[in-house]
């Protein structure tokens, strides 16, 4: 039977000024977790970065006006941390996002790479109520 320890639902306006708020929430949650096999400060930084990248992506691709929102769900289920970021944009093909070429000093295209590097699984689904970027991190 699955056990859900934490379930947090956050809705922010789709404006980049709220990235700091979202990142800080992620850090505070990481510092409250029982992390036996990883450094808490490192996890906090990683979560901050992952959520900042995911929400910035959702804002960029939402295509909506200032009244649009981005929904973020954080939950811990069976020692897995799940981060889900919902957007209402046209979506994108996650599988088509390439690994950056590090010999090329391109200014863009590293956000998904950071998320993939820091999380254990990353998926992007289209649903009836919008799109969701679903990321999982094993805590033990």
């Amino acid at each position: 039977m699955s056990e859900t320890i934490l379930n947090l639902d956050i809705v922010v306006p789709n404006q980049t000024r709220y990235l700091r708020v979202v990142g800080n929430i992620a850090e505070q949650i990481a510092k409250e977790l029982d992390t036996r096999n990883c450094d808490q400060d490192t996890l906090a930084y990683h979560l901050n970065l992952v959520l900042t990248e995911a929400v910035a992506n959702a804002i960029q691709y939402s295509g909506g006006g200032a009244k649009e929102t981005v929904r973020i769900c954080l939950s811990i289920e069976n020692n897995d941390l799940w981060v889900r970021v919902y957007d209402h944009g046209q979506g994108f093909d996650l599988a088509a996002v390439p690994t950056p070429d590090f010999d090329d000093v391109s200014e863009r295209g590293r956000g998904i790479f950071f998320i993939r590097s820091l999380m254990d699984s990353v998926e992007y689904h289209r649903t009836d109520s919008g799109n969701v970027l679903e990321m999982r991190k094993k805590l033990t």
């Binding site: 990235l19 930084y45 901050n48 900042t52 990248e53 863009r108 295209g109 790479f113 950071f114």
Partner: peptide, 8 residues
Amino acid sequence: FIDSSGLG
């Protein structure tokens, strides 16, 4: 803290 756009 630096994200991908800061690095960009």
